[in-house]
């Protein structure tokens, strides 16, 4: 599985572009592991109170997770997970 971080989410993940070493069976498990790896700031912006922040977009293989099974979306080897913020200034 590849987890990719974009825009300012990358900063919250210690300036990591992508991770290939994380194993998780569900999106919930993945976000829980990432929150433990990157600490409070990552968790509060991405996974507050173990829910997905409404300011973050997560795609699994290009599909928005709200169109899959949300936090219960199953993950497997080879999946690509993209995590990025909503950006609406202009």
């Amino acid at each position: 599985m590849v987890v990719k971080f974009f825009a300012h989410i990358r900063k919250l993940a210690g300036n990591t572009k992508e991770r290939t070493d994380v194993k998780a069976k569900s999106l919930y498990e993945l976000l829980d592991k990432l929150s433990k790896d990157y600490g409070n700031e990552f968790q509060s912006k991405v996974f507050p109170n173990n829910t997905i922040s409404d300011e973050v977009i997560i795609l699994v293989n290009g599909t928005h997770i709200s169109h899959l099974n949300g936090l219960n979306t199953k993950l497997k080897a080879g999946d690509v997970v993209c995590i990025f913020p909503m950006i609406f200034g202009g």
């Binding site: 825009a7 300012h8 909503m86 950006i87 609406f88 202009g90």
Partner: peptide, 9 residues
């Protein structure tokens, strides 16, 4: 298009 701080899309 969206932009804030140093990031955009």
């Amino acid at each position: 298009g969206g932009a804030v701080a140093d990031t955009g899309m």
